[in-house]
Design a protein around this nucleic acid. Structure first.
Length: 956
RNA sequence: GGGCGGUUAGCUCAGCGGUAGAGCACUGGUUUUACACACCAUUGGUCGGGAGUUCGAUCCUCUCACCGCCCACCA
């Protein structure tokens, strides 16, 4: 028995357990051994994460695809797992240490700290996984992976070592984006350019050999900068060689104010005469452009900051070299002063000595760390890089050739744009939590990269023995004893960018580098479903790594969805307070309702606007379905074994078979094209506006009528269509459909079925062949497997007949409402001048029409009776004799309006047909259509005029 | 500065060359035996502005306006 009320919370918690017990989501089920695989890897959420609306959307869409394909008979692997999220996780644990007033990370030491992180991961890392289960995600949870798992870590090391040996990973000393708060390098992608209101400071740099005076413009050159504090590291001034103002100064030197360093004026195209003063200070160690300029002119690179962005001047040999007397004192005063405080201090001093010409307000983009939020410092360090340019080429080709497709296709442009201008990828991070780089250094800094410590050490020791740095004996001892070699060979302390391991996700999760059956069967994957914000971070890098190591692109389709916003279109954010917690709405309205709301909103290329009210609307839809199923149950509707819907005798039943097949086709076509909104809206419409509003209502007289073949057939058909609905809807609303399926049908789980088949979809190709052979002439819904299109059953006759009933009932209801006829008042209906077809139809629908249109009686007559309202339904007059009830004047107005409408139609068509060019140029069928339209309008007009005459006759 | 979207009923969006559509909201009515989380019936739009191509444009082209996003080293 179906419960009276739909209570999602009860159903959903129970169903989760049922699925888990049945291990229903396992890939490689024995009955799917011969089936084609369908693979999706989950975008692994951060272990630190908890489910937000973006996750809810992303995973709903993946689940829809997975359940859909599973029902079509594919062997589905939805690979779940989580990401170790280097920086984020390390930050969480550090914050926790601070809150609990425990020793800091550095006090604790690397080993202890990592233990602590692992402990945290064991305790809290499962949160998001459980939340995904509440959403109904049908991942193969038995295969859950973590990017720092032993297996995945092996993949990371293997990839690193191989790329290193191929020369695609290398170490380089250059400027990186340095985060002075997190004390690590970050990649370009982790830098956010944020508009900041700042200043442009115009500084006077005295020219060597002249006596500096603010009044004497020939005694200095003005440079403009947004970062005056970096002047301490200036090693040149650049002017444009074409710039008449400064040309003569090229080759001369300036004396850096405050510092006293003698630096050259160089000519370089980089200097833009239009910008600032036209002369630019060059700080190769603290600016990406200046770094390049410096290289071109052999300028010194002087780093004046420490890791935390404070001035590091005392003991800084690069800085102090060649400076005059007193430089020490100045250095000591500014030493350890933070960059922003130093800026103020330096500007003040420059001003004091007349070196500051002016200050202009200036709004410009300033790089910020996306995790720390602090201003990023270009910083000269040794880091590891991936030669992304080389790896990008096959990845570009794969999308160009269509082997991997973006949906919507537009995103491929974004992808190309980035890939074609890709920069070396900085992969080393000065963190502890992550995959430690498998590189070891000898005492001279020589690097040894290997998959294991043993291998690296033996290479290294062999090398140093050969170089006679150590003796054979020493080498042997150090090889055997870690402690003995501790000071001699050291491992690189850095870890890899989290995205490095994520890039391997589509194959590392399958067991690579081992040659596992899973790798063979499930790689490459089919679809990747993700947000546009990580195309560069993740999609592009998976493409590069997948193609390089597996020789095949990791997925054939990349479906890119957009953002979930609030109902006004604003981005959800904590500060705005407009965040909708998915778990909150799941508690209130159910996961099914949330999923359906998200799917219905997921139009390609559009952000999804969501409000709790939208979720409520979809909960109401679930309730509607629930009640329809209760109705079927109360009427003992059961589809007998072997029931063939397409063989139904009754017109209404043939009609719903027709409509059901059509809906099935719509849904599957939409899903195949990743049009989640079209698919879900098609089901919505079909369930509510076709099945409930018309089919069940039209079937009621039959269901309450006399026993017999027709009633049996109708009961079977009600159940059949209901089952088809449950199957169609299952990918979107898995909980309620599974519940209703089990309660009403008491059959095996929906998960086992193909939506177009009565049989479990595990039937083999041979069985299909057998079944078809057995009934070669029988029109049947063939069991559909894999990608075979749904059946093409239609019944235009039934459609026309039911269409007539629907139109008639609607027209009568409409006029009754218009005339304010109380629902309790039953009226008579006279079909005037009905065709033989109508006369034949009526007996089949008499009861239904009477019931739905609230009629006392239906009869035929040659013409409409006196004082009747006359309706035109599909070209025939339906009259409601309402003498005394109707307002004749109002009725006349109504008919006049209809005539006017018909006239307008005729006029429009005439205008077209009267246009010679139209008749000459438009396709024949269009012209023909117009002619038919005209005829129809003329016929309609005549009928209404007749009706109007009749009305006036009576009136007179 | 470069690139990509968007602008259609009050809201969210379909439609993308042949007379404007859906859902929700609104309004009026209904204790009709599955469902008031419901039913029935309505109201509502010179398809952002302008120009062009075409027999015909919401749909194609150009242009302008506004909104949003992404990328970029501009002192």
């Amino acid at each position: 028995m179906i419960e009276k009320n739909y209570q999602p919370a009860d159903i959903e918690s129970r169903m989760s357990l049922v699925w888990e017990d049945a291990r229903a989501f396992r890939a490689g089920r024995p009955d799917r051994r011969d089936a084609r695989p369908f693979t999706i890897v989950i975008p692994p959420p951060n272990v630190t994460g908890s489910l937000h609306m973006g996750h809810a959307l992303n995973n709903t869409l993946q689940d829809v695809l997975c359940r859909f394909e599973r029902m079509r008979g594919r062997d589905v692997l939805w690979q779940p797992g989580t990401d170790h999220a280097g920086i984020a996780t390390q930050m969480v644990v550090e914050r926790q240490l601070m809150e609990r007033q425990l020793p800091s990370r550095r006090d604790m030491g690397r080993e202890k700290f990592l233990e602590r992180v692992w402990q945290w991961k064991e305790e809290s890392g499962g949160t998001i996984v459980n939340q995904l289960k509440r959403l109904g995600a049908s991942c193969d949870w038995s295969r859950e992976r973590f990017t720092m798992d032993e297996g995945l870590s092996r993949a990371v090391v293997k990839v690193f070592v191989q790329l290193y040996r191929e020369g695609l990973i290398y170490k380089d000393k250059r400027l990186v984006n340095w985060d002075p708060k997190l004390l690590t390098a970050i990649s370009d992608l982790e830098v956010q350019q944020i508009e900041v209101k700042g200043n442009l400071w115009y500084l006077r740099y005295p020219i060597e050999g002249k006596t500096f005076s603010p009044e004497d413009t020939s005694s200095f050159i003005v440079v403009a900068t947004t970062r005056p504090e970096t002047m301490l590291g200036d090693t040149g001034v650049a002017v444009n060689p074409e710039d008449e103002r400064y040309k003569h100064l090229i080759g001369k030197h300036v004396i850096l104010p405050l510092v006293g360093r003698r630096i050259p004026i160089v000519g370089d195209d980089y200097s833009d005469p239009e910008k600032g003063s036209g002369a630019v200070k060059v700080t190769p160690a603290h600016d990406f452009n200046d770094f390049e300029v410096g290289k071109r002119h052999n300028l010194l690179q002087i780093n004046v900051f420490d890791q935390e962005g404070a001035m590091a001047l005392v003991g800084n040999e690069d800085y102090l070299r060649g400076l005059p007397e007193g430089a020490d004192e100045f250095a000591a005063e500014l030493n350890n002063v933070d960059r922003f405080a130093a800026r103020k201090e330096i500007v003040a001093r420059l001003e004091n000595f007349g070196f500051l010409e002016k200050i202009e307000p200036n709004t410009h983009m300033v790089p910020h760390g996306d995790r720390s939020g602090v201003v990023i410092e270009p910083y000269l360090t040794d880091q590891w890089y991936v030669d992304a340019h080389t790896l990008a080429q096959p990845a570009i080709a794969a999308v160009r050739s269509g082997r991997t497709q973006f949906v919507p296709e537009n995103w491929s442009k974004t992808y190309f744009e980035w890939m074609e201008n890709i920069q070396p990828w900085c992969i080393s991070r000065q963190l502890w939590w992550g995959h430690q780089i498998p590189a070891w250094y000898g005492p001279d800094g020589k690097v040894f990269v290997a998959e294991t410590e043993e291998e690296a050490v033996s290479h290294a020791l062999g090398y140093y023995v050969e170089q006679e740095v150590i003796t054979v004996e020493q080498g042997r001892e150090m090889a055997l004893d870690r402690n003995k070699r501790a000071g001699f060979i050291k491992r690189d302390e850095d870890v890899l960018d989290t995205w490095f391991s994520s890039a391997l996700w589509p194959f590392s999760t399958l067991g690579w580098p081992d040659d596992t059956p899973e790798v063979k069967r499930y790689y490459p994957t089919d679809a990747l479903v993700t947000g546009f914000d990580i195309i560069f971070f993740w999609v592009a890098r998976m493409m590069m790594m997948g193609l390089h190591f597996m020789k095949e692109a990791p997925f054939s389709t990349v479906y890119i969805h957009r953002l979930v916003r609030d109902e006004k279109g604003a981005k959800m954010s904590k500060s705005k307070g407009n965040v909708i917690d998915p778990l909150g709405v799941i508690d209130e309205f159910g996961a099914d309702a949330l999923r359906f709301a998200l799917a219905r909103g997921a139009a390609q290329g559009h952000d999804i606007k969501l409000s709790p009210q939208m979720v409520e609307t979809n909960r109401n839809f679930a309730t509607k379905l629930w009640n329809a199923c209760r109705f079927a149950e109360m009427n003992d509707c059961v589809a007998p074994e072997g029931f063939d819907a397409t063989n139904a005798k009754d017109t209404l039943n043939r009609w719903i078979a027709h409509e059901t097949v059509r809906a099935t086709r719509e849904v599957s076509e939409a899903l195949e094209a990743y049009r989640f909104n079209d698919a879900s809206n098609a089901i919505y419409r079909f369930v509510w506006n076709v099945y409930c509003d018309w089919y069940l209502e039209l079937a009621k007289p039959m269901l309450t009528g006399e026993e017999g073949a027709a009633k049996d057939e109708t009961r079977a058909m009600v159940a059949w269509a209901r089952d088809e609905i449950l199957k169609l809807l299952h990918p979107f609303m898995p909980f309620i459909t599974e519940e209703l399926w089990e309660v009403t049908a008491r059959r095996e789980t929906l998960l086992a079925l193909s939506p177009w088949s009565r049989k479990p979809s595990a039937v083999t190709a041979e069985e299909i062949a057998l079944m078809s052979a057995a009934n070669p002439n029988e029109p049947m819904l063939p069991p559909v497997l894999l990608d075979v299109a749904p059946p093409d059953f239609t019944d235009e006759v039934a459609e026309a007949e039911i269409g007539w009933v629907v139109d008639l009932v609607t027209a009568i209801r409409s006029v009754r409402a218009e005339m304010n006829i109380a629902p309790a008042t039953l009226t008579a209906l006279v079909l005037a001048g009905a065709s033989t077809e109508t006369k034949a139809r009526l007996p089949r629908w008499n009861d239904v029409i009477k019931r739905m249109a609230r009629l006392s009686d239906i009869s035929f007559a040659d013409r409409a009776p006196e004082g009747a309202v006359q309706l035109l339904v599909r070209g025939e007059v339906a009259a409601l004799p309402l003498k005394g009830v109707i307002d004749l004047a109002a009725e006349k107005t109504r008919l006049d309006k209809e005539i006017a409408k018909a006239d307008a139609d005729i006029k429009r068509v005439d205008a077209k047909l009267g246009n010679e060019k139209f008749v000459a140029n438009a396709p024949e069928e269009i012209v023909e259509e117009e002619k038919e339209k005209r005829e129809a309008a003329v016929a309609r007009r005549e009928k209404i005029i007749e009706a109007l005459k009749r009305l006036q006759e009576v009136n007179a």
